[in-house]
Structures are given as C-alpha cells and as structure tokens.
Simulated scan of single mutants.
Amino acid sequence: MPELPEVEAVRRGLEERLVGNILTEVRVREPRLRRPVPSLAPWIGRRLLRVERRGKYLLWRFAEGTLLVHLGMSGRLAFVAPDEPPGRHDHLDFLFEGILLRYTDPRRFGLVAPLDAAAEWALEARLGLEPWDERLTPAWACAKVQGRRRAIKEVLLSGDVVVGAGNIYACEALFHAGILPDRPAESLDEDDWARLLAALRAVFEAAIAAGGTTLRDHRTVEGKGGEYRGRLAVYGREGEPCPNCGTPVRRVTQGGRSTFFCPLCQHEK
C-alpha cells in the first residue's frame, strides 16, 4: 500500500501539472472500487485550485468542493498520451484541458469520492497529526499512548497518533530509533518518542526526495519507480547483515504483517 512518501510524490506531480486547469471530462470504465464511484458529472467544468495530502489521502481542492482520492493497495495515477488505449485495470480517466490523468488499480481497493464538510470532519477525527505538525511533540505523543499496551509498530500503522507510516516506514523508523517493534506503546518515554519522531521524519524526507519506494506497484505520475528501496536498512532484508552492527536482520509476524528489525540495535532500555 502506498505510504506517505509515495502519496506525497504523487501529490507533487499532480500539483505541478494540473493546478489551474479545468476538469473537462471524466471517463469511468469500472465504477466498482472500494466504494462505487459516484457520478462525477457535477465536477466537469471546475478549475483545480490545489492538491493537498492528508495522511495517505489526496484532496483535490476546487472552489466548489473537494474530491478525495485514495490509492488503496495497488492504485496508481499517471499522465498518459491522450490517444493511449486503456488497459485491463485502467478504470478512470480524468481530462484536464488536454492533459489525460489515468487511474489504474488491479485490486480495486482505491477510492474516488466527493468530500463534504461532514465527511472531512469525520476523516480528521480519526487521523493523527502530520509528521511535521508543530503540535506533534514527544510529550504529546507520550501522553497520547498512555494506557495503550499495543505494540508500538501497530500503533504507528494505525495512524491515530502520527499519520503516514505503513509497514515499510514503520520498520525503518523503529530501526533508526533503536526501538523494538513489539514494545508496548505505553512503555515509550519522551526520550524514546523524540528519537522515534526524528527518525520517522528523516526517513519520510529521504524517501520523498527519492520518489518513494517501489516494491511492485508504486510509480510516480510520470511513470517512474521510487528509488528509496536501495536505502532500506531492514525492511525486506531478513537474514542480511544489519548495516550498523552486522547482526542478521530478523523477521517476525505482527498483526498478520512481516516486521523486520535488528535484535541488537533495537533493544529494551
């Protein structure tokens, strides 16, 4: 599933090419995504003012309202030539004054839907803070997880403390912070959170600069793969030497997902 760096890379590409253009046509070939795609006819003729990201969601802001786009597990947005025929999994086309943006989603877990004020309030209510939000301090995060015995990695994946980390970047940030992924969240003190938040921000920033991480599906809107994969310290590297100490990287299963870590560099206090 695309995580914050991948979604941010897509956002920047959309912002660069589409802002200021009018949506002139939408072609829906397959409306059966995570939720059925509603009629987008009312959006035709509207000018795109900006493209924002909230967590892993894209928000297309028009003067008349907002379209929410979520890439799900395998969704991609890409600029293609206006005469390029659609493939089997090319479900939607958005035309902006001669610019064709195509939505592809083999698993159809993505989402395209209008976002009214009530729906946006509900979205905000269940999302944590952005990684660079000034309110996201070690003290705030520490207080937020008091009484929560869930493993810290699972808390990161939930996105209700800080948004944007999926399996890849949660593993990477915990490694760089020296924190075991199965530690109860309530056991982290302010010093732990200071290291973890710094690591998370650094990993995100480096991954965004590299266009994200491409393991299988992710591509930028220009069709390029993310280049951060070669910089992953532990994710997907079971049995390989830790880049810090040489200890073989271990893999365990948490919540049905693989977790990668170094048993020496990540340890209890």
Rank of each mutant, 00 (worst) to 15 (best):
G98L: 11
R88A: 14
F96E: 00
L92Q: 09
L71R: 13
V69W: 15
F94V: 00
F94L: 11
R76C: 04
R88E: 13
H89Q: 05
H91A: 13
F79M: 05
D93Q: 07
F96D: 00
S74Y: 06
M73R: 03
E84A: 12
R76V: 02
D90W: 11
V69Y: 12
G98N: 08
R76H: 07
H70D: 15
L95C: 02
L100F: 12
L100T: 02
H89M: 05
R88W: 06
V80F: 05
G87R: 08
A78C: 10
S74R: 10
P85E: 07
V69T: 00
R76Q: 11
F79W: 07
R88H: 10
G75M: 08
H91P: 05
A78F: 05
L92Y: 06
G75H: 03
F96S: 00
D83T: 01
H70C: 15
L92S: 04
L95P: 00
L95Y: 12
V69L: 15
R88K: 15
A81W: 04
P85K: 08
F94H: 04
P82Y: 01
R88G: 02
E84Y: 02
G87I: 00
G98S: 07
M73I: 01
E97C: 12
V80T: 03
G87F: 08
P82S: 05
D83W: 07
H91T: 01
D90S: 10
G87C: 04
P82I: 07
P85Q: 10
V69K: 15
L71W: 13
P82C: 08
F96Q: 00
E84C: 05
H89C: 01
G72M: 15
H91L: 14
L71K: 14
L92M: 15
L95T: 00
G98F: 08
D93R: 03
G72S: 12
H89Y: 11
P86F: 09
H70V: 10
D83M: 02
H91W: 13
G75L: 13
L100R: 15
I99F: 12
E97D: 14
L95H: 11
D90Q: 12
L71E: 08
A78E: 09
D90N: 10
F94N: 04
G75K: 11
R88I: 01
S74A: 13
H70S: 09
M73P: 01
L92V: 06
A78I: 05
D93C: 05
F96A: 01
H70P: 14
F96V: 00
S74M: 08
I99K: 13
G72E: 13
G87Y: 10
E97A: 11
L95D: 04
H91R: 12
G87W: 13
D83E: 12
G98M: 06
R76G: 02
D83G: 02
E97F: 06
H91C: 10
A81M: 06
L92N: 07
A81G: 07
D93V: 01
E84F: 03
E97S: 13
F79L: 11
V80S: 11
L100Y: 05
G75A: 15
